[in-house]
């Protein structure tokens, strides 16, 4: 199921980030994707289940949340090191990364959501 990922900033996540970026709280608030109800059905993804989000640039496993309001074709992720796995490293002439809208494939997965430590390990591998 192909969607456009749009990143955003959430106040609870910002609060958790201020307090401790290595906390489980911050991970819970950050490593999520908000899906449209019908998109979730099409992708076979249930509320609270793990979902693999894969763009041309990278992939990451996060937890699926189903939005109350409809936004077919769009999926929202809080801006975080998890969503940054999907953002293209290549930039245009402005050298401003395209953080806000990223084409990605979503699918159900049994894989685990990485911790910040996992992300860091991968960064230096």
């Amino acid at each position: 199921m192909r969607v456009t990922i749009v990143t955003f900033r959430d106040i609870f996540q910002s609060e958790a980030q201020e307090i401790d970026r290595f906390s489980e709280e911050y991970r819970k608030m950050s490593a999520v994707v908000f899906l449209d109800k019908s998109d979730a059905v099409k992708a076979g993804v249930k509320e609270g289940a793990n979902v693999l989000v894969e763009s041309d640039n990278g992939r990451v496993v996060v937890v699926a949340r189903i939005s109350e309001n409809a936004h077919p074709g769009l999926a929202f992720m809080p801006n975080s090191p998890w969503s940054n796995r999907l953002v293209p490293a290549k930039t245009d002439d402005t050298r401003i990364p395209s953080y806000k809208s990223i084409s990605a494939e979503i699918s159900a997965t049994e894989d685990k959501v990485p911790t910040v430590e996992d992300l860091l390990r991968e960064m230096v591998s």
Partner: peptide, 14 residues
């Protein structure tokens, strides 16, 4: 920046 840059660029910085 390791958190806020796109992972591919953060990797270069790392």
């Amino acid at each position: 920046p390791i958190s806020s840059l796109p992972a591919g660029i953060a990797k270069a910085l790392a």
